[in-house]
């Protein structure tokens, strides 16, 4: 029994503007994949710690030193739109 998914909600969370046909296709495919993936739930993991880093590292520290970074002009050259040293985007909020 495939898992039921609120695909419109998930697409909104992922910032993907998909049409109804696409949403329906992905909803069905994800149901099948998740049904397979749900096999992990059959294992008893009571008291088992999750693995984050595969070799068990925790933190890597370095000295807090000022170092050169990428040149601003070079980085902004890749931007779809830039002005006065900033990235330009459409309005983030609607209305006044």
């Amino acid at each position: 029994m495939p898992i039921d998914i609120d695909i419109s909600h998930v697409a909104r969370l992922a910032r993907l503007a998909l049409d109804d046909d696409q949403l329906e296709l992905y909803r069905r495919q994800l149901g099948v994949i998740l049904e397979h993936a749900a096999r992990v739930q059959a294992l008893d993991t009571e008291g088992v710690e999750p693995t984050g880093h595969p070799l068990g590292f925790t933190n890597a520290f370095r000295d807090d030193e000022v170092r050169p970074s990428l040149d601003r002009e070079v980085v902004l050259a890749e931007a779809p739109e830039e002005r006065d040293g900033y990235f330009v985007v459409p309005p983030a909020l609607e209305g006044p």
């Binding site: 909600h9 998930v10 998909l18 993936a37 294992l43 993991t45 693995t51």
Partner: peptide
């Protein structure tokens, strides 16, 4: 897109522990 949707679902509120959390315990 399929994998972004799958991952977003597995990390979303209400499903995180059953899917992502459990997968990491299985990894152990």
């Amino acid at each position: 897109i399929r994998r972004i949707l799958l991952g977003t679902y597995a990390l979303s509120a209400g499903y995180y522990d059953a899917f992502y959390g459990q997968a990491h315990r299985v990894r152990t």
